[in-house]
Measured scan of single mutants.
Amino acid sequence: MEVRTIKVFTTVDNINLHTQVVDMSMTYGQQFGPTYLDGADVTKIKPHNSHEGKTFYVLPNDDTLRVEAFEYYHTTDPSFLGRYMSALNHTKKWKYPQVNGLTSIKWADNNCYLATALLTLQQIELKFNPPALQDAYYRARAGEAANFCALILAYCNKTVGELGDVRETMSYLFQHANLDSCKRVLNVVCKTCGQQQTTLKGVEAVMYMGTLSYEQFKKGVQIPCTCGKQATKYLVQQESPFVMMSAPPAQYELKHGTFTCASEYTGNYQCGHYKHITSKETLYCIDGALLTKSSEYKGPITDVFYKENSYTTTIK
């Protein structure tokens, strides 16, 4: 009895394709271990004539594949690729409408935090270190965002349907971005203890939790000093293409032309909904596939993004 075979390709990165001759009487799992086709788990399936010449994702289970996976995804987590594939199996079914010149995501599976993050990423200057993220990001900007969303979920250790947080998501993504040249110098002034300067680099240099107003941050924000008295913390120097200011959701007025974009969060910790506000020729609110415009805006804002380049204080 002759062994019926077909020729397929296996890959971990969709760049390096490895030619395989597979036995049609055995499952993919018996031949390769966990195997995925377009995100779908085909591990328990036997090869079919229609699979001839198709590319299958496999887990990096030998040295060659491990090197290829690390170079593309910059992670050695053995569960990463499987999590990416199972997320992709959902995100490829989502709709990605162009809204006001940006790629958004039609609401499904509690994905409003991903839509808000995706919209924000198209408006701030950011370059990702893992080629996987950078490639998928370019495709997302062009309207094909399924891979990018699935990668975000995998890097953030999230599953489809789980509630997510924009600030946490951005923080994970910033860790995989090139923020080497970003720098922030802060000064804390206390009447009792004097003053202390701190220099922050990388992710810490672009994120701040405690106030939404970048102007206020430049002037000074009140913080408790270690001595128990009130101290003032203010920005001395900022070198970065953008800054992200966050605070627990509270009524906040966004003035046209003073910011790049913002995240609105309605609801409580267990259950809520994100919308995205962007400042173009007027203010726009993007909620999944829905767009509304207004000249002014007041609502429960939790993150505001500002364009920056270089700032030095005039406070002496």
Rank of each mutant, 00 (worst) to 15 (best):
L186N: 02
K183R: 13
P60S: 07
T198K: 13
F242T: 01
K54G: 11
Q230N: 10
V58C: 09
P300M: 12
L119G: 05
R4Y: 14
K280E: 14
L151E: 03
P97W: 13
M207Y: 08
T43P: 06
F9S: 11
A136Q: 08
N178H: 08
A69F: 10
G194K: 07
N111E: 03
A262V: 07
C271P: 03
N16Q: 07
Q20P: 06
C285I: 15
M207A: 03
L102M: 12
D13M: 01
K183E: 03
D287S: 00
V188F: 04
Y172E: 06
L200S: 09
M24E: 11
A40N: 14
N178Y: 07
P300D: 13
P224F: 10
S246C: 06
G29E: 13
C261L: 04
M209K: 15
L200W: 04
I286A: 02
T43W: 04
L291M: 13
G299Q: 02
A40V: 14
Y214M: 09
E71R: 08
L163Q: 05
T258L: 07
S294P: 07
Y36M: 04
C190G: 02
A40Y: 13
D109E: 12
T76R: 10
R139T: 09
S181W: 13
F70C: 09
T75A: 07
Q270M: 12
L17W: 00
C285E: 14
E215A: 06
G228E: 01
Q134R: 11
L235G: 01
T159A: 14
Y265A: 00
F259Y: 03
Q237T: 10
C261E: 05
D62V: 07
N157W: 01
L290W: 11
T5Q: 10
Y36T: 04
A262I: 06
D23Y: 12
I315D: 15
A177D: 05
C182Y: 08
M244F: 03
Y138A: 13
F70T: 12
M24Q: 11
G164K: 05
L291R: 09
K92H: 03
M85V: 08
T282R: 09
H90C: 11
C182M: 03
Q122S: 03
A136H: 09
D38M: 08
L186T: 14
L133P: 01
Y172N: 14
H256S: 10
Q197R: 11
A231G: 02
Q237S: 14
A262R: 01
Y72K: 08
F259H: 03
E162L: 02
